[in-house]
């Protein structure tokens, strides 16, 4: 062991392989107050469990998109590929990352004005990342990319990114609505203010959620319907 020194403000959590890294873990770390999260896997193509770090790369990518949605810098999340024999590289990566995160300042979670709001937004992201749709899309897309390669019919990167982006957008709004309604019954306009999404979009999601029996109209006050979760 070389006993290289590195900053004390890092905590390591061991996974057997980055293949297990779930977007929900990364989001939970942010929720609990991490200023930055780094995923360190083997060198690309050299995962000891063959494909683990390729999967992780997708998950990290997805999580970056998600935190960007709520105004958190994507630089707070990073994946590096370092072999277990490259101690110095590991130290360098940790140092670089802590420096970068330091320059970004403390996590917005800790901010007095915005903290609570961002925490709630992360909760919606965690629900989004736990939901069937986004998980299935990410899992399937990996396969599509691979198989695309096998038949040499590469699916354009932009197309894939668009699918992911759209799914994240939709699911995030829906989960945010559900989260608000779980606390209080609310109207379309109020919801729109609370989650910062235009009323017409909120309305379209409300009708989708209603169709799927996730919410319903609780009562109508002054001609305005108030919704509740089922």
């Amino acid at each position: 062991m070389s006993r290289f020194q590195y900053p004390t403000n890092t905590r390591t959590i061991r996974v057997l392989c980055t293949g297990q890294v779930d977007p929900t873990y990364l989001l939970k770390a942010f929720k609990h107050g991490a200023d930055g999260v780094m995923v360190i896997g083997c060198r690309l193509g050299e995962c000891h469990y063959i494909t683990g770090n390729l999967h992780a790369r997708w998950k990290v990518d997805l999580t970056k998109r998600m935190i960007e949605k709520i105004g958190m810098s994507t630089e707070r999340l990073e994946m590096r590929f370092i072999s277990s024999a490259e101690g110095t590289k590991y130290i360098e990566a940790v140092k670089e990352f802590t420096d970068k995160v330091k320059s970004l300042g403390p996590t917005p979670i800790k901010s007095k004005e915005k903290g609570e709001k961002i925490k709630r937004a992360i909760d919606s992201l965690i629900s989004t990342a736990s939901g069937y749709r986004i998980r299935a899309v990410v899992a399937k897309i990996q396969k599509m990319m691979e198989e695309g390669n096998v038949y040499n019919e590469k699916i354009p990167q932009e197309e894939i990114e668009k699918i992911i982006e759209d799914t994240v957008n939709t699911e995030f709004v829906r989960q945010s609505i559900l989260l608000c309604l779980r606390e209080n019954t609310s109207s379309c306009v109020k919801l729109s203010e609370k989650i910062n999404v235009s009323p017409d979009i909120v309305l379209s999601h409300l009708s989708h959620l209603r169709k799927n029996n996730l919410i319903d109209v609780d009562r109508v006050e002054e001609r305005v319907p108030l919704y509740k979760v089922l």
Binding site: C17, G19, G52, H55, R135, Q142
Partner: peptide, 14 residues
Amino acid sequence: CKGCGICASNCPEQ
């Protein structure tokens, strides 16, 4: 099974 966790992080139903 080697316990790599790839299945777990991909299962849409968790």
